[in-house]
Design a protein around this nucleic acid. Structure first.
Lengths: 101, 101
DNA sequence: ACCTCAAATCAAATTTTTTTGATATGATAT
DNA sequence: ATATCATATCAAAAAAATTTGATTTGAGGT
């Protein structure tokens, strides 16, 4: 049986409203972790946890600048997620109803 | 602050590998619950739980036929999910880096 | 070197999700 | 009406995700 853990990791980024709120913030442009902590009313280590999930999905990338980390939306990550979404949910060319009867 | 619970519900369908395996089965065509139980090696009530999440996302639809329930992929659901994915992850036209410095 | 700050990591507590087994519901058949 | 079958729902248990606070790491600054 196929292992879908890589795909699950992609969409894990999008299945939580706090992470969606973070993405919404990143839509406005590259954002520093400390700004996200303030805007999201979230603890430092909780933010770090969510950012890890977002980065693991490929949808967000991190850029280190001195001691600060800046996060932004990844075009590549978005395109890949979009491609997989369609692949995972589009029926095969020849489909065959399966029923127990 | 915007409420993203509706969007989270969509992608919750895709963030679990068991549900992705179910979708993979549905790609082959409309499938009866009893067939899914066998193929997925899952209990009846666990399947019912996952199918509820899949239907709530809009990506899957259920069709009742007598006492049997048949599940299939929804074109409308897929298109909406795809649209939202892009909307949620595409930067705004004018972006502005935000940093604490 | 030491100190400070930003972020990651860890372990424990908390919350949410998922599984399990039992029961309820709803459809069909006798 | 009763019986049977398929699925949904419920409550409890189990597993996984998330939060919290403490500590560590790593980059600069003095």
């Amino acid at each position: 049986m196929t292992d879908f853990s890589k795909d699950a990791r992609i969409f894990k980024a999008l299945c939580d409203r706090k992470r969606l709120a973070i993405l919404d913030c990143l839509k406005g442009g590259e954002t520093c972790a400390c700004v996200l902590i303030e805007k999201m009313h979230i603890g430092q280590s909780a933010l770090s946890y969510h950012m890890k999930i977002l980065c693991d999905s490929g949808i967000v990338t991190a850029r280190q600048e001195g001691k600060w980390t800046h996060y932004s939306l990844s075009v590549t990550g978005r395109n890949y997620a979009s491609k997989r979404l369609l692949e995972l949910t589009t029926p095969n060319s020849q489909t065959q109803a399966k029923c127990c009867k």
